[in-house]
Design a protein around this nucleic acid. Structure first.
Lengths: 254, 254
DNA sequence: CGTGACCTTGAAAGCCTTCAACTCGGGTGG
DNA sequence: CCACCCGAGTTGAAGGCTTTCAAGGTCACG
């Protein structure tokens, strides 16, 4: 069913990343940018060093599986560049994208022994992988890691609950507006310009994230443009022209 | 906007619950049934005793607010009897129920300083409340608590992701069948008979959980009955007549 | 026995989907 | 260099699933 794990195949090419020589190194992640260690949240530098020590770097080209639902959950990982999609499938192939992951984002945490969803690269992705076994060992020694992981899980849970409201009760227009605003906020979190919103994923991915079809997504983009709420310099860039009105629409106020 | 917190009002009447005299008591929860301490998961008995020490018991009549989205998240709690609904609202009153909580279930964990959703009792509810400040203090002393909380959060996250698939991609029939099967599994987890499924909530709650209207829920119940998949002795009891076929329907296989 | 809450059922309407055709831009090969 | 092809996106028209609006039924309660 699942032919192979790309994490164990040539698709993931580990790149050089020296672990710090000593746990006391003031700048433990000099060889690795800060995004690689988001997993640790607010843990101190010594723990960051330990994390950097068990981490391996990988690069994945666009449109490639990263892990699949039901596979043994061997590792958790942080994306450091590119975009990934997390999704679940129904028996007949219908797909629901649970979320997108960008530079600095975390994925792969699962309760059971297997992944609860699949992950694929959308564009070319760079990520840092933390083997589960070694992470578990680290958690046993450094209980503060559990608090960092709990924070990550709570963030993810909050986002999922917001998406439940979107999928259960919002109209197509409200869904797309909510999505654009959340992408804009995500760009700001990554210290990128909040406008224009850059769509790193195609219409099919947007549709499967919003519980719509590509045609409805396309029509709704057109209708938002006609209403003067957005501009579309090209299919992958959205200028937010009326953030206030869009916020109202996203919260179901008009 | 939010008139008052029922947790600070007469709606929640603390009842007697003696904390164990010593942290070494072999049966720390003798005065409190096991369901009150689900928060601790697999932590050892000493920690269970500490938890029991900061816990207060409350009773709430049906249809009463427990906490509301945006309020300060003062406590987390375990339901020990009855049913509660967790939900979010849109600006115009549309409601999405995020989940139901039954005896033994946990709720109120939130990342920020405020609750991310509202909670109400559906039927009369008994719950055990753990004040956040005291729980934080306990977490600082007993890091294993964070692992228990992480497990709870991961369970909740997994359920939310399953519900995303339901709301985004399943038909009305698939949604209702999925719901009935999950209620059945929940009954089995609570050591109750898996059949008949007992609907402790009304059609409006089911509709707002499944992203449908009460009319569609009612019609879909009727259609499942006509197909011979379920029997409806009365509006609140469902006999599962063909679990296998229903499992297939729920996974989108027919 | 009236009242109201809840559930069910019917008919019409609507939002989104499905099916289909068309456009646009990039890559390829003649 | 340009015709051709292919993937991705857009747009149109018809259809369907669910919603909306409306009415009727059942049961508990006063």
């Amino acid at each position: 069913m699942v032919p192979h794990s790309p994490l164990n195949s040539a698709a993931l090419r580990p790149t050089t990343c020296e672990a710090p020589a000593s746990a006391r190194t003031p700048a433990p992640c000099a060889a690795c940018d800060a995004r690689a260690l988001n997993i640790c949240g607010q843990v101190d530098e010594a723990v960051q060093c330990l994390l950097a020590g068990i981490m391996t770097r990988h690069e994945i080209e666009g449109g490639t599986p990263i892990f699949e639902e039901g596979q043994p959950a061997d590792s958790v990982m942080n994306i450091t560049a590119g975009t990934a999609r997390l999704y679940k499938l129904l028996g007949d192939g219908r797909r629901q994208i649970l979320g997108f992951r960008f530079a600095g984002d975390f994925m792969g945490l699962s309760h059971g022994a297997t992944y609860a969803y699949s992950a694929e690269s959308v564009s070319a992705v760079q990520l840092c992988r933390f083997p589960r076994r070694r992470l578990e060992a680290l958690r046993a020694q450094q209980p503060q890691l559990d608090r960092g992981l709990l924070d990550l899980a709570m963030d993810e849970l909050g986002a999922a609950q917001e998406q439940l409201l979107l999928l259960g009760r919002k109209t197509a227009e409200e869904r797309l507006v909510s999505f654009l605003l959340s992408l804009s906020r995500a760009q700001r979190r990554r210290r990128e310009p909040a406008d224009p919103v850059v769509l790193t994923m195609g219409r099919a991915d947007i549709a499967d994230y919003l519980g719509l079809t590509i045609e409805t997504v396309s029509r709704t983009f057109g209708s938002l443009r006609k209403k003067g709420l957005i501009a579309l310099p090209d299919a992958l860039h959205v200028r937010v022209l009326s953030a206030d009105r869009m916020e109202d629409i996203a919260s179901g106020l008009e």
